[in-house]
Amino acid sequence: MDSLFTAAVAGLSAGGAYAILGVCAIFTYRLVAVVNFTGAAIGAAGTFAMVALFELGMPLLLAVLFGVAAGALAGLAIGLVMTTWFAGSNASTKAAVTAALLVGIIAVGLRLTGGQHPHYFPEIIPGSAFRLAGVEVTWAAVTTLVLSVAFTLLTEQFLARTRTGLQLRALSQRPMAAELIGIRVRLLALGVWAVTGGVTAFALMIIAPLRSPDFASLSLLVVPALAAALIGAFSSFRAALIGGVMIGLLEGSVSAIGPVSQYRGAVPFLVILAVLLWSQRGARWDEAR
């Protein structure tokens, strides 16, 4: 039982990062109407930029800042593609485009980062914060959790209380009507892509030392991100926050259960399946009648 608890606590860092990624996924979906499969890949680009600069001898803090900026730029690049050629497309076309872009980014990312060539991922927030029932809770876990809660609350307040937030909400509801009243639709959309790119990059930097250190593995963290977003029904930031943390805890717990520990990576898929089945229960009931 103790080992299960220890493993669950070990999943807190990942849970916090999943929560941030999930909130970013909802942010992108709600404001620019894109189910974004490239979210984690954008973050991976920023993370590897940080690693490359660190390996070249740049101080860690500076490398992190450049990495976040690289993530924002990568997000901006994807945003440019989406707003230039797919602004008028429907949601499924946009999702398909980001899925295709994900494949392309992974291919290019693996090539540029040397495939499976090992890189040293520095712990940007090292050390133990406190002990919880005898279990060490790291600063990385505390930081990702605090960051995920802060990002969720700030996002909600920003959308509710600022003029730019109001414009973003208008943009998300009726893009053309928003443009017809003079809202700078493209600029705001690009801002959303850049912000989510930068935030995702920072979240991945924190948990990268705990994951397989290759570009593809980090990029595929889009799966738990979308699972968290799905728990929030691509609408509720808070539900995605809780969902992301729960997925992290569940993953951590599963890793302590011997026979199934090697399948811990399947947890987000199971969560997605469970949420989809749950969301369809009304339709099944209607059909049965």
């Binding site: 909400r169 208008a170 509801q173 009726r174 009507a177």
Partner: peptide, 9 residues
């Protein structure tokens, strides 16, 4: 045409 309010605002 079509009364294009922002419905959730």
């Amino acid at each position: 045409q079509g009364r294009t309010v922002f419905p959730a605002m």
